[in-house]
């Protein structure tokens, strides 16, 4: 078994309104920053032991499918690295 950290990044699907990101962008602009757009995402770092990087990724993928993301509104990515 090898120790891995799986990074699961959950973001809204393209085209789904993100009111919190819009307000954050407005606040940045109020502070004088110049920006074209802003998107937010949730990042989960999952420490786990697995037989292989693939097995770690599979398990993190299932975590995203079953809880961390809501497939109706979210896309997600999984990246695995040795810890």
């Amino acid at each position: 078994m090898t120790a891995y950290t799986a990074v699961v990044t959950v973001r809204l699907k393209h085209g789904v309104l993100d009111p919190e990101a819009e307000r954050t962008q407005e606040a940045l602009e109020r502070l004088g920053f110049d920006l074209a757009d802003l998107r937010s995402a949730d990042r989960f770092e999952v420490d786990l032991d697995a037989e292989s990087a693939e097995a770690a990724a599979d398990r993190a993928d299932e975590m995203a499918e079953r809880l961390l993301a809501n497939p109706t509104i979210h896309d997600y990515t999984v990246e695995v690295e040795e810890r």
Partner: peptide, 17 residues
């Protein structure tokens, strides 16, 4: 209900935030 798949779709942040 929607999170559990009992009903379709999702309820998320209001347009007004």
């Amino acid at each position: 209900g929607s999170e559990s798949g009992l009903t379709p779709g999702a309820f998320t942040t209001n347009r007004s935030a």
